[in-house]
Amino acid sequence: MAKPQRLNHLVIHELDQELLLYDPNLDRSHRLNPSASFIWQQCDGQHTVEQIAQLLTDHFEVELADAVKDTQSALQRLRAEQLITDG
């Protein structure tokens, strides 16, 4: 079961609940809104996608079905932007 892992070479700026990430290898910057930031921070190589979705429901008081769908969508985007690996 995939346990996504955030990349550790990124420069991280935390601003309120949002994150700005700078990738020095690709020279690209990213803004993650609060929910995306939360998901990215749970990508520690220990949590499965389902576990991250469960944490999202606890944190943001959202229905599990929506959380699963949005977690999957967010992880897909984070993967595409090379901000996580599949661990």
């Binding site: 309120d16 609940q17 690209r28 910057s29 990213h30 803004r31 993650l32 809104n33 609060p34 929910s35 995306a36 998901i39 944190h59 943001f60 008081e61 959202v62 929506d66 769908k69 949005d70 969508s73 967010a74 985007r77 984070l78 932007e81 901000l83």
Partner: peptide
């Protein structure tokens, strides 16, 4: 001060979650 973020515990839509420059 930047706009107080009223969404601390309020779920935000998934899109756009990630904005790249």
């Amino acid at each position: 001060a930047p706009q107080a973020n009223p969404t601390i515990k309020v779920y935000q839509p998934a899109e756009p979650l990630c904005e790249t420059s």
